[in-house]
Amino acid sequence: MPAKPLPPTDPWTEPYWTAARQGKLLIQRCKTCHHYVFYPRLVCPHCGADALAWVEATGKGVIYTYSVVTNNPPSAFMADLPFVIAVVQLAEGVRMMANIVDCDSAALHCDMPVEVTFEARSDEITLPQFRPQR
């Protein structure tokens, strides 16, 4: 079975991954138009300005939508079955893909409150994940 995939990193996303290793979820905020931005970009997708600053997210959010994967996943995820994949809407308004972990999958629902947690996938890469708010 292939190892679970690691995200490619870029110089401008490095602060995000460094923070994740330290248990912090960073997102960006445009200094010109003040919109929050996820995923990390080179340019603000709202106003086009080249002025994105890093801010620590609250780490709280709700499940916009989710799916419990029980069959036919990518090879690298076969051993994880069943697992939950979700789109989480952070309190700041931005959305991100993540797994919902430490949960009863039968109790999940859209708009359910969740909070960030972290999964170390390699020495370099820690993935932000989410679990039901406690």
Binding site: P5, P7, Y64, S67, M97, R121
Partner: peptide
């Protein structure tokens, strides 16, 4: 599971097309 799916922000979470359909169907049913 990699074609058209973000290598940085989605592939590491196991997104693939059945899950894409599952996510969209779930929200629409809701």
């Amino acid at each position: 599971s990699t074609a058209g799916i973000s290598k940085e922000w989605e592939v590491p979470y196991g997104l693939h097309y059945s899950a894409v359909a599952g996510l969209i169907t779930q929200r629409t049913m809701y």
